[in-house]
Design a protein around this nucleic acid. Structure first.
Lengths: 103, 103
DNA sequence: TTCATTATTTGCCAATTGGCAAATAATGCA
DNA sequence: TGCATTATTTGCCAATTGGCAAATAATGAA
């Protein structure tokens, strides 16, 4: 894991707000489970509901949260809706977290 | 930002729980502001209180949250308490987030 | 020991979160 | 159109969060 080449500009309150919002979306274990599943390929809601083991209304709500911060995108095909990660680079954050937690 | 060399083992519910806890600690803009300040070097509580602009009891509480997940460590010197990031590699997560948000 | 300074803890309150279940919406077939 | 399937939204409720202010703890000097 190397340093990233991101500029060191001063962050505005809105920047922190936006970052906090994404972290908040990630602050639920069931949502993390969903994201990890999606990192391996698209899944439909019923799939994810089976995986998470909660009521489908809850899973749908979690997916709505993830959609809200742009982590996932939905694709309706007939009665079914499939979800995918909008950008897999978010998994890099998990790698960073694992390194942090291993330290 | 390159991929990290972390093993692909199956995560347990407790793993997701722990990850979610760290993300939760990061899900508040004022705590992000504190972390960013600490990434540049240690700061005392009064410093951070001035920076954040909230009541000192609130700042102390935020610092307690960060301590609880191991993001920061405290060092009491007399009446003052100084805080530092336990491991600066956590800043890599912010870099990943910025890349994600720029995508 | 008293008093001042600094930081943490606690209590209060409003807002938010997360789970279930019901209600509603979207899709597709007969 | 009616009905079935799938998913989303809404309502309810308990738990949690975050901010302020008061109470309490920790430190140090006189």
């Amino acid at each position: 894991m190397t340093s990233c080449g991101v500029s060191q500009q001063r962050k505005s309150p809105a920047d922190f707000r936006r970052s906090a919002d994404v972290f908040k979306a990630l602050s639920n274990p069931n949502r993390l489970l969903i994201i990890e599943a999606l990192s391996h390929g698209e899944r439909c809601v019923a799939d994810l509901t089976g995986l998470v083991g909660l009521d489908i209304s809850t899973v749908s709500n979690h997916l709505s949260v993830l959609r809200g911060v742009g982590l996932v995108v939905d694709d309706r095909r007939g009665a079914q809706v499939f979800y995918t990660l909008r950008n897999p680079c978010v998994m890099n954050m998990f790698c960073c977290l694992e390194e942090f937690q291993a330290s």
